[in-house]
Design a protein around this nucleic acid. Structure first.
Lengths: 243, 243
DNA sequence: ACCTGAACACCGTTCAAGT
DNA sequence: ACCTGAACACCGTTCAAGT
């Protein structure tokens, strides 16, 4: 309504402005809907103007991932590997919840950009500082895998009955008829789902608490790593892998 | 050269033929390059002809995932949960190596199709049959997560120096100059990578053996699960989660 | 130096028509 | 019943021009 001071005819473009706009546009409309043309619209600019600031769409995505990864908190040093790893991973998960496009974007990158390498370097540093061998560090970094970026390993979610609407994957209370169907064809899923749905006094009462499942799996992995480290794992142990 | 018996002017289309063609086309050119139009070309048909056999591209991808998942081997019953899970997961991984588009396709599905539900049901059945509570089964299924489909949790791969060419991510021996760079900026990555590259007598000598890393992580998880089961885990244990 | 316009070679999908 | 043609509303990107 009133005249604004910034943006007289139009604000000047820059890589930062392009990336920031891309990040919040992706937050809004999702990664699949994010196109160079749509982004240009948002910036009140013709599509080709973007190409002065990003090489192409791949470079745009690289830049968006950089922005996201730099937001992962690095806690103070000296907390020990387990706490250090745990806090980084939980912070990464928080970023991914704020930027739901993050997983797809990170997974589709082929070149590791500086912020990505820095983050991995800091994780590796935690293990090495606490006396993990380079070998063991290597293997546990692989074992942590996507969880270092806060990826939930799902592909699983609720039993069936997906959310028809855009986002909100509600606790999905299924109807009696659907449950009957489920019991018939997938009795084991039904048995498992029944507990997660009914039960009211236990931890699982919250239906399916994503944060709980995430930490459950994370701690299972950290427990395993701690045990290997405490037992002085060496490459030789790998030969006599169980089974 | 000689006249062929099948495909007189052109073979009749069917959902199966469409899906099979899509699967092998994706094997060849990758999922991103797979378009309805390209697939139609491959089948010597106009793009719109496909829409009689698949509802849309989403439905095509659903069908392709069905084809892939049905190829996962279900070992005979009675092997016990650990062996049963391990063999399924390793078989799933083999499928994913044959169909590199599988991961992206599976991850992008929102509705769980019958073959997917059947596979999950069979996994859950293994735990229940060996006396896992429905609660614990629920949590460990989440913890296994993408690994049940044979997903490597990577996002990690070699240090830097990505494969410039299309596919073959070679062991990537990096040059002395690159290594110097790496040491400067990412000392911990360098330390870790040095072992995986030099060492010649140990297990890690193979540089970075994907199969080894996969099984290392899988067994770490299975060990953890076994321990919980043996100790009679109950939801109450979750309250006193470490840290 | 930075932005624009027009064009190219693609997409998925609809709709009305052909056989 | 199944396939086709033409069209619509999109893509990413190049290239030659404008200011």
């Amino acid at each position: 309504m009133a005249d604004r001071l910034e943006a007289p005819p139009r604000a000047r473009l820059s890589r930062d402005r392009v990336l920031t706009a891309a990040v919040s546009l992706a937050d809004e409309i999702g990664l699949d809907a994010l196109s160079m043309r749509r982004l240009a619209d948002e910036l009140d600019v013709v599509p080709m103007a973007l190409y002065k600031h990003v090489a192409d769409k791949e470079d745009l995505l690289d830049g968006m991932v950089e922005v996201l990864v730099r937001e992962i908190e690095l806690p103070p040093a000296g907390l020990g590997w387990r706490t250090g790893v745990r806090r980084r991973v939980l912070s990464a998960r928080r970023e991914l919840l704020r930027h739901p496009w993050g997983r797809q974007a990170i997974e589709s990158r082929k070149r590791k950009t500086p912020a990505v390498l820095e983050y991995m370097d800091s994780l590796i540093g935690l293990f090495l500082a606490d006396g993990f061998s380079a070998d063991l560090t290597h293997h546990v970094m692989h074992a942590i895998g996507g969880r270092m970026w806060g990826f939930t390993q799902e592909v699983f979610e609720e039993p069936p009955a997906a959310s028809t609407s855009g986002r909100p994957a509600m606790p999905t209370p299924i109807s009696a008829a659907e449950f009957e169907q489920l019991t018939q064809h997938f009795p084991n899923i039904a048995t498992m789902a029944a507990v997660a749905q009914h039960d009211d006094g236990t931890v699982v009462a919250r239906g399916c608490d994503d944060q709980f499942e995430f930490e459950f799996a994370l701690d299972l992995m950290l427990d395993g790593i701690e045990r290997l480290h405490r037992n002085g794992w060496t490459p030789a142990d790998a030969e006599l892998t169980p089974r």
